[in-house]
Design a protein around this nucleic acid. Structure first.
Length: 899
RNA sequence: GGUCGAUUAGCUCAGUUGGUUUAGAGCGUUGCAUUGACAUUGCAGAGGUCACUGGUUCGAGCCCAGUAUCGACCA
């Protein structure tokens, strides 16, 4: 039965991943080797693999596999975070489908349901990462809500409280009325929406018919107004400075305040101020000492302060108020108005600014530390220009204290116990009670007198500890001492502030307390040394790929269609560091659905097939004991030089995190140089290859497989095993990264010129309609250069004959008849065609080429005639220009001789 | 409105700190090729005033200023 001619990824990939797991190659234990550590950006436990994950984790896998091949102790820690809002929403929804309301459950009952949900549905994404080939140390898988990590969070909270960095305060926060929780700024998505701007008149107190007209988009908040503001320079309202107006409907007097915050040109130039329901109004209120009236319930319905429509949702109430204001004649005008509306990322509810009592972490000092860590270079960003964004995030004027409490159950419950108005923060209720009794010795406080805070901590309050907590650093520093600081972090720039900055803060805040001083001095406090920022994956219309837009291809379908190697190749070829990548999955014009196809991934799949077939070719040769022919010797020397050159380049590119370029370099080398030139050059007519050549070929091929392994682990492991008999424990994944040897540039230059000769003759054949198979005669004008190459380099002549399909290649001193001339370096070559040729047509082309070269020669002459250039430019540059001049002049001479 | 970034081939992008680049790659495109590893292929070709205007420099795709367009983030 003939071997299949096409590579099939599915079986190969499953087989090797299983093998690697059985060999436990991905597991790391501290030893005497240098560690190379990556902690995964923990995906949301509810998450499913999407394009962003595939990009991100492919890069991490490339880095970790490369480190493993370099002989370092590679440790990639996987895990998930508990995603409080998203997970709680899913659990609530599932319970509701079963007819259970969250409000009917106790907190403990709810948590039991939530953990059950996590066991059943959570962490699917980690299984999906295996399909991508991710070489994570699965024994180290962590989860931010598991007991040890829970304890770490609590410990950190208590410690920060002791240091005075946590406080409780009333703040304007983003309130999600659907989830009934506070959102961080980053969890609110602002988009422009169509709204109305209502012009409402406020009667000036003490007059009968004088009104000031304000413009508002939120008439339902009128009962909570506590001032009316105008710009100090606005002539229209100058006469009302210091007076009062009467709020319509509720007939309450409020002051007219003057502030240059008010836009004279916006609306009517008069602004109603509602400190409880608008961020800017709140700031105004604080500045002018205004009263705060809150008219909303937590669920977004109106409370008694509204006086009208109590219990009605704010959106409906707006309509009702408009109707009522119209009826009283106070509504003068309604204008359509487009403005930015903030909605909850999770529930899509319109976010309400709301004053709530929250726990805050002071950010000022930490932000300075975190900025310094990057600016000093202790933490390096790739690409470097990401520091600009980081700096703008962390500027003192942009830093706000971190609101860490969330009104949810799924998360670490804040370890704060209240006794009357006093708070006691401790790791356990018992400690809090002891503390309370210490302070109030006579009060005899009992456990039931204490009430624990109902809120849980922000999920990021878990993830910012990740590089420390995954090694149980808060419990026992043993592993932390070995693995910390971690090497590289790979993540999207969109969570630079959210997560990266905060991990740096945590690293500097806690590592000192956890690790021996000597170690800190040696290795530093930073959580990681390098951060590689990936771009966002966008669709062909440049929109960010997201679940809600439905514009993301199905990651698993892509893996099925192209294999993990194909997809990894496709992702990486389009992913220059930091730049957003436009992924080519097309959208069906009919159905508007995204198709799970990709030309980029297909290219990767084809590359696998190419490698697979190159191996088939080599395996098909019969090894014989004979001396290799000169072509093979020449090609072999060239391949070795070219391979060393390639390794040098790939090493440099990976060192600079230019991952996609490293892959492109390997692709071009393997496909172009190895398959298209080398294998064609050594291909024996009789199918028999000298053992020496066979060994050289296999040796080069297996090094290529190791080089490509980090990028495309499966095909490389498969082929690596087919190249030689391997012992147990010998696998590509744990082979050794090849060392770049020195190489003779002359060997590459000579070979390149021979390749040029062959390409030129192929071009002439194409233009003349002469088949590539017909053997032709080639003459090369004798010169010092051609003598040194064709005459002196062993195998040069034979190589041109073989790959150029020539019956003979000879040096000549005369001009052969009936031959088409072309340039061989700076000299002339003549291809003899077995047909009458007309040189007339050729002349025009040659003259054109002469004209082009003359223009360039003129340019160089001008340069060299310029004394300033000759005296200022480095010698090497001047010499280069002189060489250009000599080369081009020689070419022109050769071309002139042709016509 | 504020800040940052981008503009290089039909498309998507490189271009490593100003001179070996006579601006590259992949895809697409054009022509030719099919019994010999692979049509998931091979060979070759065409295609660019590096957005525009000025400046610095012996020398600019790269540095500076302005203009235009686009994008992102923040408000």
């Amino acid at each position: 039965m003939p071997a299949p001619t096409a590579y099939s990824a599915a079986n190969v990939e499953a087989k090797w991943y299983q093998h690697w797991l059985e060999k436990n190659y991905f597991h790391s234990e501290p030893d005497e080797r240098e560690p190379f550590t990556i902690v995964i950006p923990p995906p949301n436990v509810t998450g499913l693999l999407h394009m962003g994950h595939m990009l991100n984790n492919t890069i991490q896998d490339i880095l970790i596999r490369k480190a493993r091949l370099d002989g370092r102790n590679a440790c990639w820690v996987p895990g998930t975070d508990h995603a409080s809002i998203a997970t709680e929403a899913k659990v609530v929804k599932k319970l509701r489908a079963q007819g259970i309301k969250k409000s009917d459950l106790t907190r403990d009952e709810f948590m039991t349901h939530a953990f059950a949900w996590k066991e059943e549905y959570g962490g699917i994404i980690l299984e999906q990462l295996k399909q991508l080939g991710a070489s994570c140390d699965w024994e180290r898988t962590r989860f931010t809500m598991e007991p040890e990590l829970y304890k770490a969070v609590i410990k950190v909270f208590v410690s920060l409280h002791k240091k005075g960095q946590l406080y409780r305060g009333l703040r304007m926060t983003n309130w999600d009325p659907a989830a009934q929780t506070v959102l961080s700024n980053e969890e609110v998505i602002h988009t422009d929406e169509n709204k109305n701007l209502y012009h409402v008149r406020y009667k000036v107190a003490g007059t009968d018919d004088e009104y000031i007209v304000i413009a508002t988009s939120r008439p339902e908040t009128i009962p909570a107004d506590t001032a009316l503001a105008v710009h100090p320079d606005d002539e229209r309202y100058r006469k009302y400075h210091g007076r009062k107006v009467i709020v319509p409907l509720v007939n309450r007097e409020i002051p007219i305040i003057v502030d240059d915050y008010v836009g004279i040109d916006f609306g009517t130039g008069a602004l109603k101020v509602t400190p409880a329901h608008d961020m800017n109004d709140n700031a105004l209120g604080e500045k002018h000492g205004l009263e705060v009236i809150d008219l909303l319930n937590p669920d977004g319905t109106l409370n008694a302060n509204a006086q009208f429509f109590v219990g009605m949702d704010r959106e409906e109430a707006r309509v009702a108020f408009v109707k009522k204001l119209k009826a009283t004649g106070d509504l003068l005008e309604t204008k359509p108005y487009r403005t930015s509306v903030g909605r909850s990322e999770r529930t899509n509810a319109v976010v309400e600014p709301r004053l709530t009592l929250q726990w805050f972490l002071r950010m000022d000092d930490m932000a300075v530390t975190a900025l310094g860590a990057v600016e000093s270079g202790e933490v390096k960003f790739h690409p470097e220009n990401m520091v600009n964004m980081y700096r703008s995030w962390l500027k003192p004027e942009n830093v706000r204290d971190w609101c860490v409490s969330r009104q949810l159950w799924w998360g670490q419950r804040i370890p704060a116990w209240y006794w009357n108005d006093e708070v006691f923060v401790a790791e356990t209720a018992e400690e809090a009670l002891a503390e309370a009794n210490r302070k109030h010795a006579t009060a005899d406080i009992k456990m039931e007198d204490l009430k624990q805070d109902d809120d849980v901590l922000d999920t990021w309050f878990s993830s910012w500890l990740w590089p420390i907590s995954v090694f149980d650093g808060f419990k026992d520093p043993k592993e932390l001492e070995y693995y910390y600081p971690t090497s590289d972090l790979v993540t999207g720039w969109d969570i630079m502030f959210f997560w990266v900055a905060r991990m740096i803060m945590a690293g500097y805040e806690f590592s000192e307390d956890l690790l021996p001083k000597k170690l800190i001095e040696e290795k530093g406090k930073m959580p990681f040394k390098n951060v590689y920022f990936t771009g966002m994956v966008r669709d062909e219309k440049r929109r960010k790929m997201s679940k809600s837009l439905g514009n993301s291809p199905d990651a698993l379908e892509l893996l099925k269609n192209y294999g993990a190697d194909g997809v990894r190749f496709g992702m990486m070829r389009s992913a220059a560091a930091g730049n957003d990548i436009v992924f080519d999955a097309p959208i069906d014009p009919e159905t508007k659905e995204v198709l799970n196809t990709s030309e980029l991934c297909n290219q990767g799949k084809k590359f696998c097939n190419k490698i697979f077939n190159a191996n088939r070719l080599i395996q098909g040769f019969e090894q014989v004991d004979r001396a290799p022919d000169p072509v093979t010797v020449l090609a072999g020397r060239w391949l070795e030089a070219k391979l060393n050159q390639t390794i040098t380049e790939v090493d440099r590119m990976l060192g600079e995190y230019r991952i996609s370029e490293a892959l492109a370099t390997l692709y071009n080398f393997i496909w172009g140089d190895f398959c298209s030139w080398y294998l064609e050059a050594i291909k024996p007519a009789d199918g028999k290859l000298s053992s020496e050549t066979y060994e050289l070929t296999i040796s080069a091929f297996e090094r290529m497989m190791t080089l490509l392994h980090p990028f495309m682990p499966f095909i490389t492991e498969e082929v690596w095993h087919q190249l030689r008999e391997r012992k147990d424990g010998e696998d590509c994944v744990v082979s050794t990264w090849p060392t770049a040897g020195s190489f003779d540039k002359k060997v590459i230059e000579d070979f390149t010129l021979l390749q040029d000769i062959i390409s030129s003759t192929r071009d002439i054949r194409n233009q003349r309609g002469v088949t590539q198979k017909e053997e032709l005669k080639l003459f090369v004008q004798r010169s010092e250069a051609t003598e040194a190459l064709i005459g002196a380099v062993a195998g040069a002549k034979d190589f041109v004959e073989k790959s150029g399909v020539m019956s003979s290649v000879e040096l000549t001193d005369s001009t052969p008849d009936n031959a088409l001339p072309f340039l061989v370096g700076n000299d002339k070559g003549y291809l003899v065609l077995n047909e009458e040729i007309d040189l007339e047509g050729e002349r025009a082309k040659i003259n054109e080429e002469i004209a082009r070269l003359e223009k360039q020669v003129n340019g160089v002459n001008r340069k060299l005639a310029n004394e300033k250039f000759v005296s200022n430019a480095p010698d090497a540059v001047v010499a280069m220009e002189r060489k250009k001049l000599a080369d081009w002049s020689a070419k022109i001479d050769s071309l002139r001789a042709m016509v």
